[in-house]
Design a protein around this nucleic acid. Structure first.
Lengths: 111, 111
DNA sequence: CAGAATCCAAAAAGATACTG
DNA sequence: CAGTATCTTTTTGGATTCTG
């Protein structure tokens, strides 16, 4: 979430879930709460830094809830909020489109 | 389109239509071909530079077709391909989600 | 375990001026 | 009209080290 004045709903939606990681994190959380390290395993290639930054953005957008169990050793769980679930539902067709066309997209020449 | 090895369809889809402008350009082209200057008017705030860069990326991804009429003064039309149309269709739910939640998203504190 | 801090590189975007 | 060419700024991502 970076901007404020959106020209349309699509603009706003892409702003909130765009970028390299956020959609994948939402996707990873769809089957229930995950701990920090678990999310990391579900999103291959992400660094701790990008994970925490992305989780915080998703949190302040109201899409993800952070539950700190205040234990030692630390235990923190991340889960989708209702708002996050509604966004995830809206992303499903996009995911299916990508699934069906991945081969084509991966075969493109580099720009 | 920047990467190659996608972890899932959503990853691929966001890569191809993500960023600040590309979704808006696809959206602008939905009602038929537009000339360069017309696209620019339909996408408020975009610079000529970002417009041509984005159009080229969309073109090399096979989503947008560029038709040069080779006239003087120049006339070039951009239009969605069938592939582009299929992506646009998959983005509709996301646009509706954003439309319904724009007020909420715009009211968020800056991160 | 779940981060924070710092530094750095790369990519995306913006501003301005110019051209066939 | 439909772009190019430069330059600069901003944003994003990565690597490494450190901590409660």
């Amino acid at each position: 979430m970076k901007r404020r004045n959106y020209t349309c709903g699509l603009d706003a939606a892409v702003d909130v879930m765009g970028g390299k990681w956020k959609a994948l994190i939402l996707w990873a959380l769809q089957d229930g709460p995950l701990r920090f390290a678990e999310v990391r395993r579900e999103v291959p290639g992400i660094s701790e830094r990008m994970l925490i930054l992305s989780l915080r953005e998703l949190g302040s957008a109201g899409l993800v809830h952070r539950e700190d169990y205040r234990e030692v050793p630390p235990k923190v769980e991340y889960s989708l909020t209702g708002f996050g679930r509604s966004l995830l539902a809206a992303m499903v067709p996009l995911g299916e489109w990508g699934e069906q066309n991945m081969a084509e997209l991966e075969g493109l020449p580099r720009t």
